[in-house]
Amino acid sequence: MNKSIMIVGVGGQGTLLASRILGNVLLAEGYDVKLSEVHGMSQRGGSVVTYVKYGDKVWSPIVGKGEADLLLAFEQLEAARYLSYLKPEGKIVVNTQRIDPMSVLAGDGAYPDGVLEALEAAGAAVQRVDALPLAVEAGSPKAVNVVLIGAMAKNTDIDKEKWLAAVRACVPPKFAELNERAFMLGYEKGE
């Protein structure tokens, strides 16, 4: 049975590194893996999406509406934006961080209140992670992505050591320790 994961966030939050770590782990597990990501213009502070699919044989690299088993959201509003991609029985792992989009900064819209409650009211299983303080604790606010990968990893059957190996393989050696700490802080918060 194939599985679909979506990683959504704001350009610059490091979603591409998160998907590389995920791809690395799934490949090591012997799965057929396809990942699809968007480069270029939308990376500049825009809403970004990465699709991760794995199983015995994967055809399409993208995840469609109602197809994601897991939605890993680096920001609340982005979780809401892509809710329709989640399977009704799927799960959302969401960073509780709020980042105002330019439309809100420019006064063209408001950042809604109660986003996470609305997701739960819609029937989604929501796991909240306050990733920014954990990333700071690990040594850098930029490690939010690896904290969230850690929190998500707890939802899979894949062994923790294999995840840590993938983290090490995907970051520069001098940041390996910091990122391992970030992963573990997220992993311990996972459900």
């Binding site: 610059g12 500049r44 509406k65 982005e78 809710l83 009704p88 330019m102 986003v115 819609a122």
Partner: peptide
């Protein structure tokens, strides 16, 4: 047609912006 969840929340757009 796929079954989807919908949340009662207005999601403002997040276009790319100058860094």
């Amino acid at each position: 047609k796929a079954q989807v969840l919908t949340a009662a929340v207005d999601v403002p757009p997040r276009p790319p912006a100058l860094c």
